[in-house]
Write a protein that binds this DNA or RNA. Structure first.
Lengths: 145, 145
DNA sequence: ATTACTGCAAAGGCTTTGCACGGGT
DNA sequence: ACCCGTGCAAAGCCTTTGCAGTAAT
């Protein structure tokens, strides 16, 4: 999503498109490794725009509400944020503390094989409804050891 | 795993099989919904065995190290613990704050369709190694709305 | 002028840690 | 007697919140 479109979305929600929000959003879309709130704050500060920790968190929460970002819970660490809100597969490199996107065609290939008949069976046998299937990969840089 | 076998594992690791550890382990295997540390402490206390919060956490960490339990990270909430350390699929019921196991045959059916060729492709295209595939379901009680 | 945004600091939830005491072997 | 296990309280990390000041419309 382009920043100019973000501006429109803000307007539509009766929310102000302020300097810090602009700066936070810019850093978020420019950073490929899905930064934490703290990393994002550092980036914004380095860019010459002062912003407080609270504002970074509040701003990111706002982005998520507006559909401009997605929050990625990280077990045992700070959550990360992603400006790409489309459904896509994440690969966690735990040793580096990074999260990367898996190319869509490969992600699609993984998801497409998950037969909905199996999910239907799970629903009927367990007496529940499945809302979402969470899938993510955990790996590390380098070849198979 | 039977408590009697747990005792053996403790011995093997040169760790004492004390009253609290016994009580914590007993409550853990008896509780089907994968309790949090706090819930587990309450259960142990109700059972008439006094135990502190710190000990519950330390004990659970010990169990995980010994392979007697698994820690389940819960986004935005307290982590949960599972005495079943075999690979199996979890279903999170977020509205109830519960986690249930998916019957093995169904979980197996879901996993088996994930072609390893796709994972190989991801590895070569991204220049990484995939260590684990994380999969879990999020749902709610009741029929499809 | 009105309303929303921001910063600071405080508090919050969950978890770990330091240290002195007590209990197992 | 030794060492491990335990409790308590303090500190830790990440995040949210209250409130007073500031800026946008």
């Amino acid at each position: 999503m382009q920043p100019v479109e973000a501006k429109r979305i803000f307007k539509e929600h009766g929310v102000r498109y302020t300097g810090r929000r602009k700066a936070v959003y810019k850093c978020l879309i420019e950073t490929r490794t899905h930064p934490t709130a703290e990393e994002l704050q550092s980036l914004v500060l380095e860019g010459g725009c002062h912003v407080s920790t609270a504002t970074v968190y509040n701003t990111l929460a706002l982005f998520c509400r507006l559909g401009l970002a997605r929050r990625l819970p990280i077990p045992g660490g700070a959550d990360r944020y992603d400006a790409d809100t489309t459904d896509h597969l994440h690969l966690r490199l735990d040793d580096l503390g990074e999260i990367h996107d898996v190319p869509d065609d490969l992600a699609e290939a993984l998801f497409s094989v998950m037969d909905s008949k199996i999910l239907d069976q799970i629903e009927s046998r367990m007496g529940i409804s499945v809302d979402r299937v969470g899938l993510h990969l955990i790996g590390h840089r380098g070849s198979h050891e």
